[in-house]
Simulated assay, not measured.
Amino acid sequence: MLNAQVITALLRHILTAVGGALAARYSLDGASIEAIAGGVATAAGVAWSLHDKRSGVTRSNN
């Protein structure tokens, strides 16, 4: 099963690749890519949190 650390690492690498592609295709600057990646990461974090809360999964903190 994928844990939160694996998911965030994968998301970070995917966003890096997407950001590089956008920069190459549309000549975006670093600040624009950071803003887009930050927004996507925030939205993904909120979605993940909502999913956890709605699924009612209880996890121990080990």
Rank of each mutant, 00 (worst) to 15 (best):
H13C: 11
R59A: 05
L22Y: 15
I33Q: 01
L50C: 08
A17I: 04
V18L: 01
G56V: 01
H51N: 11
T42Y: 08
N61V: 09
V40D: 02
Q5F: 10
A43C: 02
L50N: 14
G45K: 03
G20C: 02
L28C: 08
G45Y: 03
L28H: 14
H51A: 12
A17W: 11
G19T: 02
S49H: 15
A21H: 08
S49P: 13
L11E: 07
I14N: 07
S27M: 06
G39C: 03
Y26S: 05
A4K: 13
V40I: 11
I33K: 02
H51P: 00
H51S: 13
E34N: 07
A21E: 14
I14Y: 13
H51C: 09
V6W: 03
W48R: 13
D29G: 08
D52N: 15
R54F: 13
Y26I: 14
V6H: 10
T16G: 02
T58S: 06
R25S: 09
R12L: 08
A21T: 15
N62V: 10
L15N: 10
L15V: 00
R25A: 09
G39T: 12
V18E: 09
K53Q: 14
V46I: 09
R25G: 11
L2F: 08
A37N: 12
A24F: 08
A41R: 06
D29L: 08
S55W: 02
A44M: 04
G19N: 01
A47M: 01
G56Q: 03
T16H: 01
I14Q: 05
T58P: 00
V46A: 00
A35L: 05
L22N: 09
L22G: 10
I36M: 07
H13S: 15
L10S: 06
G39S: 02
A9C: 09
G45F: 03
V6P: 01
L2M: 07
M1T: 13
